[in-house]
């Protein structure tokens, strides 16, 4: 099974970078990565379609801001929740669900299994290269959670 682990975010926009950071960390700890591609991308909406085509399984890491969220918390989401994370919706264009449906209609090979991990963040409005401390210190726990969830699947 060919798997893509795709981290979304902007590396210079504070916590927005968390999806990218998590992919970098997962690359270090996943033992047998022959059938896994690790991709970091600053994209949203339909452009995600360009990245995921041709894979059997997709693991997406993105950020989210909830009204009463606790920064660093990780949530596993299903397709029906897809429109509410940071980059799966696009303020300029189309959301991910529509993109997937479009891809299917025009005959693209869309992954059959799609898992989304959304990480609660604190700040994504200020340009800086560092994450907020709460999000930074949560990284080991987030990695443990994802690895535990996917035991035997990587």
């Amino acid at each position: 099974m060919k798997t893509l682990i795709l981290g979304l975010g902007n590396p210079i926009l504070s916590d927005d970078a968390i999806g990218i950071r998590i992919v970098q960390e997962l690359k270090k700890v996943i033992p047998n990565a022959d059938n896994i591609d690790f991709v970091e991308a600053s994209i949203a909406g339909i452009s995600i379609l360009d990245e995921i085509t041709g894979y059997d399984r997709l693991i997406l890491i993105d950020s989210i801001r909830n009204r009463k969220g606790n920064a660093g918390e990780v949530y596993k989401m299903k397709m029906k929740d897809l429109n509410i994370t940071a980059h799966l919706a696009s303020s300029h264009g189309m959301d991910f669900v529509t993109a997937i449906e479009l891809g299917q209609r025009v005959g693209y090979q869309i992954p059959k299994v799609i898992d989304i991990y959304a990480i609660e963040i604190e700040n994504n409005t200020i340009f800086r290269e560092k994450l907020s401390s709460k999000v930074e210190t949560s990284i080991p726990k987030i990695i443990d959670t994802i690895m535990e969830e996917n035991k035997g699947k990587f």
């Binding site: 902007n10 926009l13 927005d16 949203a44 950020s63 801001r65 429109n83 509410i84 994370t85 940071a86 980059h87 919706a89 696009s90 303020s91 300029h92 264009g93 189309m94 959301d95 994504n124 409005t125």
Partner: peptide
Amino acid sequence: HACATHSLPGQM
């Protein structure tokens, strides 16, 4: 809007 804001759920 994406120029100003990347993290926006929903279209516009």
